[in-house]
Each structure stands twice: as structure tokens, then as C-alpha cells.
Simulated assay, not measured.
Amino acid sequence: MKIKVLGSAAGGGLPQWNCNCSNCAAVRRGDPGITARTQSSLCVSENDSDWVLLNASPDILQQIRATPELQPARAPRDSGIVCALVMDAQIDHTAGLLLMRERATPLPLYATPSVWAELCEGFPIGPMLSHYCGLDYRTIPMDVRGFKVPELPHTRFIAVPLSSAAPPYSPNRHRPAPDDNIGLLIENESSGAVVFYAPGLGRIDSHVREAMTGADLLLIDGTFWQEDEMVRRGLSTKSATDMGHLPQSGSSGMIAALDSLPEIAGRAAGQRRKVLIHINNTNPILRDDSPERRELDRHGIEVAVDGMTFCV
């Protein structure tokens, strides 16, 4: 199974269109110590021809151009993307669906019932696309058995409910439902490898820790370094927690959580890869030469970049 990072940034990307924080400014002036990033998304394949899109960011067209595997050109109109799977109804994970409207047939879309309801009402992509290619909705079950996508017969996807924030336009914004935000366990039945993908994670509950403990590869929320990161920079009045994200630093932050994970049974020490993804443009870990990046290095934690590829 191959997993490619299409986009590694949080909403807005890097640089964000209207942001002049030090990171965004550095990218614009061509600083070699920092790399531009598009908004968070992955794709998964077993054969390099059929790809499941995990989240459809507003940067999907740029991401497809940068990923030749997604355009095999077998016909005048073609795509390697066989379906999309969205993990929440946030704009930065779903707006890209609108840019895929030229399909000749409805796009298969996997989503939980709460997310599908939002995509039909609060952010009505479903009704809008009904005037174009349409969406073929397929339910993501919230049970431990998971589900398979026909084109990836040896891969099982299992939804893991996450404590995070529903979109501002959601009636569940202040009373979240278990299926508003999910992580995904991606199990390869051929290799036995397990991947846990959770780009939006506000709290590590016991079932989330269990998912993290059993994974060979973690692609986990790296949005903020500090709880008050946006407030310190005068860019928001909201904390990381307010926005549904667990910061990396602090005694109860992501670094401490990753450090506390036990070794994988039957695997060599240090074999689990820990990769931060969905990184906000303000986060100092985006700089290759920052003290914060060196701290991550000491803990064996990587920082995702667009185009990063994993074979598991």
C-alpha cells in the first residue's frame, strides 16, 4: 500500500493568501529554510493506478498537477481518483469536491451520516454538484469492522471518532456528535501494516490512544505548537483547544503523548514513524532550522511536506 501526502498544511495553506506572519513572509521572499505547502489531503493506492482521495482540499487541482499518478491519461477524460473520503465537513477538507465537477459519472463519496448531512445543508456541496456530475454517497460506518473500497481490496478503513470541533455552520458546533470528526485506521491486509490518520485532533481519549498504539505509521494533528499561538501573534482570539486541536508543546501536548506510546508488539524499537500533518502557517516547526524543529528531531517526530510518500 502506498500513501502520498498531497497537502500537509492546515486551512489556508502556506503561505496563506492574506497572512504576513513570519512564516508566510519567508516563503514569499524565497527563504530556503521553509517550504510552501498546500492544504491537508492524502491519497492511498494498492497498485499506483487506483487512488482513494482522503479529504478534498481547495488546493486539489494544484495537488493533482504535482502528482502524475493521479492523471494516468488512459482516455480523453480520465483520473486515477476512484473515490473521495472526507473525515469532516470543514471547508478545507471538502471544497475541493466542487473542483471535480467535470466527471462524466457521479463521484463516489464516503462520509459519515453527520458529515453528509452538513454537505447537504450547512455547506450544500451535495445539492450543488447534483447540477454537474453529482455525488454517489456511501456511508462510513462507525464500528470496528470498518469498510473497504472495491478498488483497494486488501485495505480496510476503520473510523475512529475524534474530539475536535464541527464547522461553524454546523448545528453540532457546540454539541458534537461522535461522527462529526473522525480519524482513520488504514489497515493493509497484505503487509499487516496499520496507519492512523488524524489531521484534526483536540484530545487523546482512550480509544484514540489505542488506535495510536497499534499503528506503524502515525499521520497526526500538527496544527499548532502552542495553545495560545494565534492569540500571541494577534491573529485570533481563539486558542488551539477552541479550534479543536491539541498543540505539540506542554506537559499534556502531542509530543508528550507520542513519547508515552509503548513499542509495537513484535516490532523493533523505534520502528513506528510519527509524522505531524495539517500544520498551521504560524507554527514554527515549518522552519527547517527552528529550535522547535530540533526538539521534534530529538523526539523522533517528523514534519510532513507535500509529496511525501510512504510504502507500508
Rank of each mutant, 00 (worst) to 15 (best):
1 M>K: 05
1 M>A: 09
5 V>L: 03
13 G>V: 11
18 N>M: 14
21 C>L: 00
21 C>I: 04
21 C>K: 00
22 S>W: 10
25 A>S: 15
27 V>H: 06
30 G>S: 10
35 T>L: 13
37 R>N: 10
37 R>H: 12
39 Q>T: 15
40 S>W: 15
42 L>N: 10
45 S>V: 04
45 S>W: 05
46 E>G: 14
53 L>P: 04
59 D>C: 12
59 D>T: 11
59 D>N: 15
60 I>C: 11
62 Q>A: 15
62 Q>L: 15
63 Q>P: 12
67 T>C: 12
70 L>C: 09
70 L>R: 12
79 S>Y: 08
86 V>T: 12
86 V>H: 07
90 Q>L: 11
91 I>V: 14
91 I>G: 12
92 D>M: 13
93 H>K: 11
95 A>D: 14
99 L>I: 07
99 L>C: 10
100 M>N: 10
104 A>G: 14
105 T>R: 15
108 P>K: 08
108 P>R: 07
109 L>M: 03
109 L>A: 03
111 A>E: 01
116 W>M: 13
118 E>P: 01
122 G>T: 10
123 F>Y: 14
127 P>Y: 01
127 P>E: 07
127 P>G: 03
131 H>F: 12
131 H>D: 06
132 Y>F: 15
132 Y>D: 14
134 G>H: 07
134 G>R: 05
136 D>K: 04
138 R>V: 03
139 T>P: 06
140 I>L: 04
141 P>V: 03
141 P>M: 03
141 P>G: 05
143 D>R: 05
148 K>F: 02
153 P>N: 07
154 H>E: 11
157 F>P: 01
157 F>I: 03
157 F>D: 00
160 V>R: 01
160 V>Q: 07
161 P>A: 05
167 P>F: 06
168 P>Y: 13
169 Y>F: 15
171 P>H: 09
173 R>W: 11
174 H>S: 14
177 A>W: 04
182 I>L: 00
184 L>A: 02
188 N>G: 05
196 F>R: 04
199 P>T: 05
204 I>H: 01
207 H>P: 01
210 E>N: 08
210 E>H: 06
220 I>T: 12
223 T>L: 10
224 F>P: 02
233 R>I: 10
234 G>T: 01
236 S>G: 06
238 K>M: 13
243 M>V: 11
243 M>H: 00
245 H>R: 11
246 L>Y: 05
246 L>G: 03
250 G>L: 05
251 S>G: 14
254 M>W: 08
254 M>Q: 11
257 A>G: 10
261 L>W: 04
261 L>S: 03
267 R>T: 02
269 A>E: 13
272 R>D: 04
273 R>I: 05
279 I>P: 13
281 N>T: 14
282 T>I: 07
283 N>Y: 09
284 P>H: 02
288 D>E: 15
290 S>G: 05
293 R>D: 02
294 R>V: 04
300 G>P: 09
301 I>V: 13
307 G>W: 03
308 M>A: 13
309 T>I: 14
309 T>M: 15
